[in-house]
Write a protein that binds this DNA or RNA. Structure first.
Lengths: 304, 304
DNA sequence: CGCCCTGTGAAAGTAAGTTTCACCCGTGGC
DNA sequence: GCCACGGGTGAAACTTACTTTCACAGGGCG
């Protein structure tokens, strides 16, 4: 009854390595040698061929196979991939990323990259988490049914505004973005019921944007604010408020996290609007995609 | 040894899957079928034998081997264990989120938001993981020491280019961005040794950008490419190649993920450059921050 | 003393992975 | 329009890795 016929069948929950070291004493001497090698460096073992491992354990391939069966594997290849998986899992303590923190003066580039990426990704995730789908829904509806959409944003938020404008345009919505305050004011004055005005401001305190949004509101347009600060002035002139969740580290990070968060929100709105009218949006997108195709080189393969 | 003399050598630190999806468009059709299978379910692929995988991809074993070589592996067994390791690391299938996938037609807004945020955050994370700090370092050095920096980008990548320009400008570097090809070409022609040209193109196949970058290179400038595809044409005219890792879902997502990834890279470079000269950058940033302060309302509290 | 039983490796056998090669097909020159 | 060319491909030959078989060595026990 002893060992040859699969001992613990297929159930080694705690992890393969643990499992193996657990039944190490019940193995035959030659198998134990194999087991010790495997346990001491699973990753290395996974890289070896069966012959290689057998030699290292001073035994034959047959014994290695027997070992595989003893620990519940079908054969050597299976052991190998399980080992690789195991080894991969038991590494990487995600080191000391400074959550939302500053970047230490002596940091090398790899650290900087890790920190930035971590914060950026967090901003995106957290923004999505706290986004209110109900509000989004209403905004989407307003945009989808709008006669015209004006988008305002200054400085860094201007990029986002412009991006949003371009996106909406590509799916056939009539959208405008104005880099200039005066032009924007003029445009806002021409809005009316059934139109939508979107103001983007990270701080929520950019007077230009607030002013324009206010103008739009008095004209009867639905106003939407996108800001990081739920109680900032801009929210007072907005019918709907969408917030980002970027804990802007310091000025050093160039405010990219907030930008990413804004873009994510814009993307959600965009997809929401596009989803309202699948076929039309699809057609429009395909047409615009085709239009730029001619500016690509190497049409043969690298079409992506 | 004829055709595939290791292109991107041995550096796919971020993760094999990411690496493969980046390479995907540069693969031959049959190899692409294999790649897609592997990317869509690495764990399953790791369990298959080469014949099995070949059959599933409707191709021959030979092609699978070719695929292995194309992505930098020695052979199939190596791919297998790497895949297993990879699959193990990326734990937990985060519920029904369609990783890199499309958004189902019937999805409600909450689902859409979750999917988008997930993919966006992933793009940022994976991009950071696969960024080569050594290359970044060199690029940072070049930019930090450059007499002048030209940044090129068309369409969506233009926003990123513009953002980069603005960032560099804010820390006192002489940087330009040209929305127009002809102006850009003119500018490139005026570059020389000690200058840096950065070309941004998600596909890496935007002829305008490639052309301009090439021009810059012949003039003796250091050329840097930022693209999602490590083997795209743009890499041929670049001294340094930085890649993003956005598995662009469909056109529906409006290519935001790739934008975010690009911005993250730009942010890293920016912070890297800024870190090179802390005090000067700090002073410049403070000065520019002050300059826009007057456009804020409610100065008392919301200083952020 | 000899029997059986376990552990073992050599060798044979099978399956997996790899290389070679000829074919196809699209491209570009003549 | 023809032909040479070269990349992409799979069939088949080949090599290596894995698995099984088998014979034998040693040790306990009747």
């Amino acid at each position: 009854m002893a060992k040859s016929p699969k001992i613990s069948a297929s159930h080694e929950p705690g992890g393969l390595i643990v499992h193996i070291s657990g039944l190490l004493p019940s193995l035959s001497p030659a198998e134990q040698r194999v087991a010790r090698l495997v346990v001491s460096d699973p990753a290395a073992a996974a890289r070896r061929t069966i012959t290689d491992l057998a030699t290292a354990a001073e035994t034959s391939e047959a014994t290695v196979i027997r070992f595989c069966r003893s620990v519940g594997m079908d054969g050597y290849p299976q052991l190998r991939i399980r080992l690789a998986a195991e080894a991969a899992r038991r590494i990487e303590p995600p080191d000391a990323r400074v959550v939302g923190g500053d970047i230490p003066p002596g940091a090398d580039l790899a650290q900087i990259i890790a920190t930035i990426a971590f914060n950026d990704a967090r901003a995106v995730e957290e923004t999505a988490e706290q986004l209110d789908p109900a509000v989004c829904e209403q905004v989407v509806e307003a945009i989808a049914g709008a006669g015209r959409i004006d988008i305002y944003g200054a400085g860094a938020s201007g990029f986002v505004a412009s991006d949003f404008q371009q996106k909406l345009h590509r799916i056939g919505r009539i959208a405008f973005y104005f880099p200039d305050v005066h032009t924007a004011l003029t445009s806002a004055a021409l809005l009316g019921r059934g139109d939508v005005a979107v103001g983007i401001s990270h701080t929520g305190s950019t007077s230009d944007v607030i002013e324009v949004l206010e103008q739009a509101r008095t004209r009867g347009a639905v106003t939407v604010a996108l800001t990081n600060f739920p109680r900032s002035p801009i929210t007072e002139v907005a019918d709907f408020v969408l917030t980002t969740a970027a804990r802007e580290t310091t000025y050093r990070s160039g405010a990219t996290a907030s930008r990413l968060a804004q873009l994510t929100v814009v993307d959600c709105l965009f997809v929401g609007v596009a989803a309202r009218n699948r076929s039309r949006a699809r057609k429009a997108l395909e047409a615009t995609a085709e239009a730029v195709q001619s500016h690509r080189v190497g049409a043969s393969r690298r079409r992506a």
